[in-house]
Measured scan of single mutants.
Amino acid sequence: RTSMTEEYRVPDGMVGLIIGRGGEQINKIQQDSGCKVQISPDSGGLPERSVSLTGAPESVQKAKMMLDDIVSR
């Protein structure tokens, strides 16, 4: 199975929601999608934060859908 890494961007203000209490939400995204999700520690003052998604292409797609779902709330 091919693994890929894709850079994705999320609004900086949503990072807390994506990570969740004690990392609960980000762990759920990783478990449900099978994709490794790494959020860059700092946006460098930019409105968006970089997130790197690593996994099989379908896992990366699923993680993106889950991120979009959180961001659109």
Rank of each mutant, 00 (worst) to 15 (best):
I26D: 02
S40C: 11
G44D: 14
L67I: 14
K62P: 01
G16V: 02
V10R: 01
D42H: 07
D68Q: 09
C35R: 01
R9L: 15
I19D: 07
D12R: 15
V37D: 02
I19E: 09
D32F: 04
T2E: 12
G23M: 08
G20P: 02
A56V: 09
L17P: 06
I70P: 02
D42T: 13
G23K: 07
M66C: 03
G23D: 06
Y8S: 03
R21W: 04
Q30K: 07
S3R: 12
G16Q: 12
R73T: 15
I18E: 05
M14G: 04
P41E: 11
K36N: 15
S33M: 01
K36C: 07
G45I: 09
Q38T: 14
S72R: 15
S40A: 14
S33N: 00
A63E: 02
I26F: 03
G45R: 07
D68L: 02
G13C: 08
G20E: 09
S59E: 13
L17T: 14
I70N: 02
R9A: 07
M65A: 13
A56R: 13
Y8N: 02
S40W: 06
A63I: 00
V37W: 00
M66S: 03
M14E: 06
P11N: 04
E24A: 09
E24V: 09
L17M: 10
Q25G: 13
E24Q: 10
G13E: 15
E6I: 10
S59Q: 11
G16M: 06
Q30A: 10
V71A: 08
V60N: 02
M66D: 02
T5Y: 05
G20Q: 04
D68H: 05
G55C: 01
C35K: 02
I70Y: 07
M14L: 11
P11F: 00
Q38R: 12
N27E: 13
I39Q: 02
S40G: 11
D68F: 03
R21M: 13
G44Y: 10
Y8K: 03
G45V: 09
P11G: 03
Q61Y: 14
G44L: 08
E58P: 05
S3N: 15
Q31K: 08
I18W: 02
N27D: 12
S3G: 13
D32R: 10
G13A: 10
L53N: 02
R73Q: 15
L17S: 12
I70E: 03
S72Y: 10
G23H: 04
Q25W: 07
V51M: 08
Q61H: 06
R49P: 10
E48H: 13
V15T: 06
S33A: 08
K36W: 05
Q38W: 08
C35W: 00
G23E: 13
I29V: 06
V60Y: 01
D69Q: 09
I39D: 03
E7W: 09
G22F: 07
Q31V: 06
E58I: 12
Q61D: 07
G55F: 00
E24H: 12
S59K: 06
E7R: 09
V60E: 01
V37K: 00
G44M: 13
K62A: 07
L53D: 01
P41T: 11
D69R: 11
E7T: 14
G55T: 01
K36Q: 12
P11S: 04
P41G: 11
D68P: 00
S40L: 13
S59F: 02
L53P: 00
D69E: 13
Q25Y: 11
R73Y: 04
E6K: 12
E48Q: 11
S43C: 08
E58S: 09
D69T: 09
D32L: 13
M66L: 11
L67D: 03
P41F: 08
G22M: 09
M66H: 03
I39E: 01
I39W: 05
V37H: 00
S72D: 12
L67Y: 01
I18C: 02
K28H: 07
G23I: 04
G44F: 06
K28C: 02
G16P: 12
L53A: 01
D12I: 14
G22T: 06
M66F: 04
R9Y: 14
P41Q: 11
R21S: 14
S43M: 09
M65H: 10
M14D: 06
S33D: 00
A63V: 01
T54L: 05
D42Y: 11
I70R: 02
E58Y: 06
P41V: 09
V37G: 00
E48I: 07
E58K: 11
G44A: 11
Q61G: 11
K28P: 01
Q31S: 08
Q38E: 15
G16E: 14
K64F: 00
I39V: 11
D69S: 08
V51W: 03
E48R: 08
M66A: 06
E24I: 05
L46H: 08
G45S: 09
Y8D: 03
I18M: 07
S59L: 02
R1I: 15
D42E: 13
Q38D: 09
R9V: 11
D12E: 13
R21Y: 07
Y8Q: 03
L17A: 14
T5G: 03
T54Y: 14
I19R: 10
V51D: 01
I39Y: 04
E7D: 12
Y8R: 03
T5L: 04
G55M: 00
T2S: 15
R73D: 14
